[in-house]
């Protein structure tokens, strides 16, 4: 089953001069798979990612998420898809500095629910436990390390049990050991929650953990292959 599909997507930034960043992108992602998008800096990976996560709109072409055609949705429906179907992990983690670690994880739930039940609170704590920072739940984002912030962002992305996780350079500023941990974490999460992962990275280690590697250059897909030498997932 295909959860996310792009067909004929073009992106042109029109400012002082026209800048076409994406050229006729056709991509589809099977449910419960993990794909990496790799490419040089400025090749258009983040632009692609933002379009897939309906944060940005393509200049032309169509995006379909969980059988919904994005161009036919209104702002409210788009907000709902972003909240329920997609989990984002950004390169610069972006936690809300005014809220504690636990509260940050709960926010995706509170966006569509007035209050949180004890069950929901347990889920948030459980997610923090999975990412290994259960002890830090009462801290503010400014009081934890970069890697811990990243893990909080991952727990937050999982909160509403989304069918798709979009992660843009999730290990961008993590050391290799932590990067390994995050990769292992993604593998575990995929197994446990049946989530579709799409990860932008220029870290070969991260890419090697995925099922499929899509390479982008100058706004075009230049290669798209299944990852044959999947690294055995160490526990």
């Amino acid at each position: 089953m295909i959860t996310l599909e792009l067909s004929g997507v073009n992106k042109i930034y029109s400012g002082a001069y026209q800048n076409q960043v994406l050229f006729d992108i056709n991509l589809s992602f099977e449910a419960k798979t993990c794909s990496a998008i790799v490419g040089e800096s400025g090749s258009g990976k983040s632009t692609l990612m933002n379009i897939m996560g309906i944060l940005d709109t393509p200049t032309s072409g169509e995006v379909t998420i969980a059988s919904n055609i994005v161009s036919s949705m209104n702002r409210k429906q788009m907000a709902e898809i972003r909240n329920r179907t997609i989990g984002f992990v950004f390169q610069f983690h972006y936690l809300l500095p005014e809220f504690t670690v636990l509260e940050n994880v709960l926010i995706p739930h509170l966006i569509h629910n007035r209050s949180q039940s004890g069950q929901v609170l347990n889920r948030a704590r459980n997610l923090l436990d999975i990412v290994g920072i259960a002890k830090l739940e009462k801290r503010l984002p400014t009081q934890i390390s970069g890697g811990e912030q990243q893990r909080t962002a991952i727990a937050r992305a999982l909160m509403n049990n989304p069918s798709i996780i979009l992660a843009d350079e999730p290990t961008g500023n993590l050391d290799s050991v932590t990067t390994q941990n995050v990769c292992r974490l993604f593998g575990e999460i995929k197994k446990e929650f049946n989530t579709t992962f799409i990860v932008v990275t220029h870290d070969r280690t991260v890419a090697s953990h995925t099922d499929r590697i899509v390479e982008v250059r100058d706004g075009r897909i230049i290669s798209d292959k299944l990852n044959t030498k999947i690294v055995p997932q160490t526990r």
């Binding site: 702002r75 409210k76 972006y94 926010i107 995706p108």
Partner: peptide, 9 residues
């Protein structure tokens, strides 16, 4: 961030 997480207008 809130908008990316789907807060309504």
């Amino acid at each position: 961030i809130l908008k990316a997480m789907g807060i309504t207008d």
